[in-house]
């Protein structure tokens, strides 16, 4: 079929990947603006107002300023590692981006997901490359010659190691239920019933573990500002700081997408709604993005509404509570699958 040829053309796929990169950057900027506005609402103030109407250009101003600031590399820092660490961090999130679909187009009942690649092990791949950011943070800790960076980075290790395990087990239980490691297949498997209904415990554990993975507030010990000044990012100036900052937000968006893809049904809609071609092009992606936005909203709300855990409490939470819960969920899923539900 001709449509298939167009869609699976490698050149077009690469262009699509680049476009998605731009989209995710834009998404991160919108998310930062959104966070600043929402936090302002919670705290009964206005938030950015001056740069553009309601401060929509605030991030542009920040980016201009960060790009033109002096780039300081501390004298005692290991220059090569120091300079390349933000690039590794950025690479980690962009590699994740490759496998995550951003929605889907449904034409004549046939689903064509918008993703740069369509691999069979994409969920495994995402899990693997997201751990690359750990290397980036290790490079920061090693090179920056700052004790706050070291402390922040080590907290990050302790946290990430703790939370990758329950996260992985939750993904395994999802994969068992869907019978595939492909994200697109997993979304397809949720067609009538979302996985949040079949395994609510799994969703709960996955959500918390994902938040810890993203480093959002109750778990942002790696850069807890009052203790460690700015954590692992303390020594970075100008756009290197900006890259670290952006990487964090992109990670947040991608994580929210994963939550929606694995548990909240992705772009699945009743077939009647997508029968029309135009609706089929627009609606599934819009539905998917809307759910992602809701998840991001919830994560931001939590960020501004709770205090921060101590690092040993975070590790305790992971090993003593989340890990047993995730195993319980795994057993539950196996029983469900064996019963053929």
């Amino acid at each position: 079929m001709q449509l298939d040829e167009i869609i699976f053309n490698p050149l077009l796929r690469s262009i699509l990947g680049l476009v998605l990169m731009g989209v995710i950057f834009l998404g991160a900027m919108v998310a930062i603006w959104f966070e600043r506005k929402l936090s302002a609402d919670i705290q009964q103030r206005y938030g950015p107002m001056r740069a553009g109407p309601h401060g929509v250009l605030q991030l542009v101003a920040d980016a201009i300023k960060l790009f033109t600031k002096e780039d300081i590399i501390p004298r005692d820092a290991d220059r090569l590692l120091f300079v390349s660490a933000p690039i590794v961090l950025m690479a980690s999130v962009f590699l994740m981006l490759v496998a995550i679909p951003f929605g889907a187009i449904i034409i004549n009942g046939e689903t064509y997901p918008i993703a740069a690649t369509d691999m069979d092990i994409s969920i495994l791949y995402i899990q693997a490359v997201s751990a690359i950011s750990l290397i980036g943070i290790f490079m920061v800790a090693y090179s920056a010659n700052n004790k706050f960076s070291v402390l922040g980075a080590f907290r990050n290790f302790a946290r990430m190691i703790g939370y990758e395990v329950p996260l992985g087990i939750c993904i395994v239980s999802v994969a068992i239920m869907a019978g595939s490691l492909n994200v697109i297949e997993i979304v397809k498997a949720q067609d009538p019933l979302w996985f949040i209904i079949k395994q609510p415990l799994g969703f709960f554990v996955f959500f918390i573990a994902m938040m810890a993975d993203m480093g959002r507030l109750p778990f942002d010990q790696n850069e807890s500002e009052e203790e460690l000044v700015a954590g692992w990012i303390t020594e970075y100036t100008s756009m290197r700081f900006g890259l670290g900052f952006f990487a964090e937000y992109i990670h947040m968006i991608l994580g929210s997408m994963l939550i929606v893809l694995l548990f909240l049904g992705g772009w699945n809609l009743p077939a009647a709604l997508t029968a029309n071609t135009i609706l089929g092009i627009i609606l599934p992606t819009a539905f998917f993005m809307g759910k992602v936005a809701l998840v991001i909203l919830f994560i931001i709300l939590i960020r501004w509404a709770v205090p921060r855990y101590r690092i040993d409490q975070v590790v305790d939470l992971s090993w003593k509570k989340l890990l047993p819960l995730s195993f319980l969920n795994l057993i539950w899923v196996v029983v469900l699958v064996l019963l053929g539900v």
Binding site: R36, A40, R45, Y46, G47, P48, M49, R50, A51, G55, Q58, A61, D62, K65, K69, I72, E225, E226, V229, A230, I233, T234, E235, Y236, T237, F241
Partner: peptide, 17 residues
Amino acid sequence: DTDRFGIIPRNSPRHAD
């Protein structure tokens, strides 16, 4: 609310203007 002007506090001198 200095945030209206895009002015936010930073704790690390490396990020401050």
